[in-house]
Design a protein around this nucleic acid. Sequence first.
RNA 1: GCGCCAAUAGCUCAGUUGGAUAGAGCAACGGAUUUCUAAUCCGUAGGUCAGGGGUUCGAAUCCCUUUUGGCGUGCCA
Length: 549
Amino acid sequence: MKIKIYDDILTSLKKINVNCSDEFTVEIPNIIEHGDFSSNVALINTKIIKIKPRDLAQKIADDLSKKKDYKSIEIAGPGFLNFKLANHLYYKELKNIIAEQKDYGSSNYGQKKKVLIEFISANPTGPLNIVSARAGAYGDTLFRIMGHIGFEPFREFYVNDAGNQVDIFAESLEIRYRELHGHSIEEFPFEAYHGEYIKDLAVELNTIEGTKLFHMTEEDRLDRMKTFALAEIHRMQVASLDRFDVQFDNWMSEKKLRLEGILEEALSYLAEAGCTYEKDDAVFFSSTKFGDVKDRVLIKADGNPTYLVPDIAYHLTKYNRGFDIIIDVLGPDHHGHVSKLRAAIKALELDDSKLEVVFLQHINLLQDGEVVKMSKRAGKIVSMDDLLDEVGKDAARYFFINRKPSAHLDFDLELAKKKSSENPVFYCQYAYARINSIIKKAKKVKLSLKKFDVKNLSKLNKADELNLIKKMMDLGSVLNLCADNREPHRLAAYVHELAGMFHKYYAKYKIIDEGKADLSLARLYLISAVQNVISISLDLMGISSPKKM
RNA sequence: GCGCCAAUAGCUCAGUUGGAUAGAGCAACGGAUUUCUAAUCCGUAGGUCAGGGGUUCGAAUCCCUUUUGGCGUGCCA
């Protein structure tokens, strides 16, 4: 609808022969007296053309008033144009909402651009924690929204299943395995993984292998430990994600990248570009040429690559796979890393404007009012499964999506555990369930929308009713904003507002009035549309729409 | 030291990309159920948008600066 008004103004500008910037906006004003939509078109052009804002506004208003689509066009303040729409436009949109069902709000806005969203990418050395849960809710919701409005999004999880940390992980398992067989351990190494789940893994491994592993060479044994542990952890992570309704289109293995020689490929490209040099027995990347603060080591003096190399190689594959937009969703402790990566991408002569990094800010986990420190190696984790056990998928997802990514998040465990009205997800779901029960009651009194004549939509003439429709038709632009800014939290706010408008409407008006069948049916039609829009919104956030609560 | 992110009601956060009188939820207080679900609604109260300066018709929003907090600045990943 904003687009329609925008186009109307453009056409009008041409007609009255005013040549000015098309960078004006059409918005829904905060204050209801300012109309349904307002535009600043006359204001932004004061410098370019020499017409007073209010005069220009008047000319546009005069022209557009000839159309039947506007109930009124007013000029306000310094020169705002305030539009009130004719009711028939609302009814037309309402019919669309009902007709399009789950497809309402979808569009080809994304122009089929291929988008790679990499998120979570947690280390394969333990169960997923609450940080991964935030990333999961965020990345998956962004995926769903972008898919709805015509992008071609792709979800990927990068598995760091090679390198130093995986060796340490295997050694940690070895220690626990030895403990099972009565080997005394003087002191558990500090850098090893301390989590209790490793003991469980050891027990599992023991039931499969028994004492067989002791007859192997140390190298073979550790290798077996590694393979077993990685597979088990992967299985655990997939299971947790399933509970959270998060799936991936691809799990990219670092080990596989290494085996396929992509690391060497990336290194040779960098060398060809003349961006590497040797010093102190190590190979350096002259990243300072590309805006980094210092040069970085690629190959350590011991001959092993640093973590940067596989990461460059991984991003090389992202580019080679032809994505138009590459989104990395990372934790806040990785931002030092991006300047290096970006430098490498420039060195490889790839278009670094395609790469976007979203940093999800820290989560402070509060328990009894105190911050709990989370660390995998110290074994103090609140796992994603714990969270799901406590608050359930719907509340957890809403909780995470409800905040913009750049905001720090205090997660109060006690509060999140409460299944009460303090949690806004119930408010939205309740609106859906309420509508459902009204429709059920309508059937009992033989009111069926099948008998509804859309001519009777004119019965919907209360401001509250038109405002509900206005809110619903804003879905498309909300989704566009969510996608463009990579900020799905806007959808959470939107559905909460829509649910609130419905609850207020419900309290004020009776939907089913058996004496007035036409009015009742018109209102049923309206709330069915509300139900549909709430359900679409919740779906896009991966939250269920319960018929009963 | 340098870099990134933040600072809005007692608390947790929005704020449609620079718009008109800064909004929700929770907490507090007062009210509404013979009724389509009270997990709801109505009302009251709560603000120097961290401080200062600048840009312009117009700033919570953009620029500069100060303060405070988080994180980064490894031949760890």
